[in-house]
Simulated scan of single mutants.
Amino acid sequence: MQQLNVIGLEKSSAKQLADKLNELLANYQIFYMNVRGFHWNVRGENFFELHAKFEETYNDLLLKVDEIAERILTLGQRPRHAYSAYLEQSSIKEEKDLHDGRECVKSILSSYKIVIALQREILSLAGDANDEGTNSLMADYISQQEKTAWMLTAYLG
């Protein structure tokens, strides 16, 4: 007999998903702090445009951080919450002293590439586990971020 959690998912599948979601959470936390720094430190002729765009981006990332942590809890697991763990687990690296607008945008695009790939992996695991909640969350993130990546690529020319 299967061991099911409170939302009716097999506990081992929920644990596997939560582990991947914790990896995603680590990436989002570093991504968020990088973009926050870009917002504070960007300089140049596109300052006003990029300052506003970076604020929009980090606000979106912060919402996703909370949603991912809550999804981990819904799966019956605990979200990691130490920056040392985030730094250790994240594929996105800290950006320090980056203030050139184009370089900031390139970093954001690189980060989207990482989180989109990880979300696709989670989407597949969620499908295998019949976890529609995680599936829906990841599908929504992917479709939003693909459009954003296209727009940022167009911005860079």
Rank of each mutant, 00 (worst) to 15 (best):
K20N: 12
L87D: 00
G127R: 04
K106V: 08
V35F: 05
F48E: 00
Y141K: 00
G101Y: 14
V6A: 12
S91C: 06
S136E: 07
T57F: 14
H81T: 13
M33A: 13
T153L: 02
V115K: 00
Y83V: 09
F48I: 03
L98W: 06
E132M: 11
E70R: 10
E103F: 09
Y141A: 03
L123R: 01
R120F: 06
T134P: 11
N27A: 04
R78I: 07
L50W: 10
S13N: 15
V35N: 04
S13Y: 06
D60A: 13
F38Q: 04
H39R: 15
S110I: 05
G8Y: 15
V105E: 12
I7Y: 11
L9W: 11
N130E: 09
D128R: 07
Y141R: 05
T148I: 12
R43I: 12
E121K: 07
L87T: 04
L61H: 04
Y32W: 07
R80Q: 09
K15H: 08
A129R: 05
N59K: 10
A85H: 11
R71C: 06
L24P: 11
Q3Y: 14
G157Y: 02
V105R: 07
H51T: 12
E56M: 08
L73V: 15
N135R: 11
L118Q: 02
N41C: 10
N22E: 07
Y155C: 08
K64C: 07
G101P: 01
Y86N: 00
E121V: 00
R36G: 02
R36D: 01
R43W: 02
L156S: 00
Q145P: 09
A129Y: 05
M1R: 11
Y155S: 11
L24S: 04
T57I: 10
Q144K: 13
K106H: 11
D131C: 05
E94R: 07
G8W: 15
N5R: 13
C104W: 13
D66H: 08
D66F: 10
G76Y: 13
Q77D: 08
N5V: 14
K93T: 03
I114K: 02
R102I: 14
L50C: 13
S91W: 02
A69I: 02
D140H: 01
L25I: 09
T74R: 08
E55N: 12
I122Y: 09
S124R: 01
A52P: 01
R78F: 10
S91K: 13
I92R: 05
G127M: 01
N5M: 09
